[in-house]
């Protein structure tokens, strides 16, 4: 199998497109879940704890993604 298509330009574009796709999936599903958590009886205290765990982990993972993008472009 020929892997010559795996050039820096191809991977750069793939990373940019994939980042947007992941952001879109995250945004849509998070919006829907937020609606459910607020609407359907999750108590205020549990809601705060839930949001803290969910968003902190998501921010950490997105942070890793951004750092790896920066490392990729700076090398």
């Amino acid at each position: 199998m020929d892997f010559e298509f795996l050039t820096v330009e191809f991977i750069s574009k793939a990373m940019a497109v994939w980042f947007l796709v992941v952001m879109a999936i995250f945004g849509i599903l998070t919006g829907i879940m937020n609606f459910h958590w607020k609407q359907y009886g999750v108590s205020e205290k549990s809601f705060k704890k839930l949001k803290t765990i969910y968003y902190n982990t998501s921010i950490t993972l997105f942070g890793i993604m951004i750092v790896t993008i920066l490392v990729y472009y700076l090398i």
């Binding site: 795996l6 995250f26 599903l29 998070t30 998501s58 790896t68 993008i69």
Partner: peptide
């Protein structure tokens, strides 16, 4: 090194998707 960084990026994005799926 460039491709190691790219692989790490895709691995982190896979974890984001799995995290969201788990929460759903």
């Amino acid at each position: 090194p460039k491709f190691i960084a790219a692989s790490s990026f895709f691995a982190a994005s896979w974890l984001v998707i799995l995290w969201v799926i788990f929460f759903v």
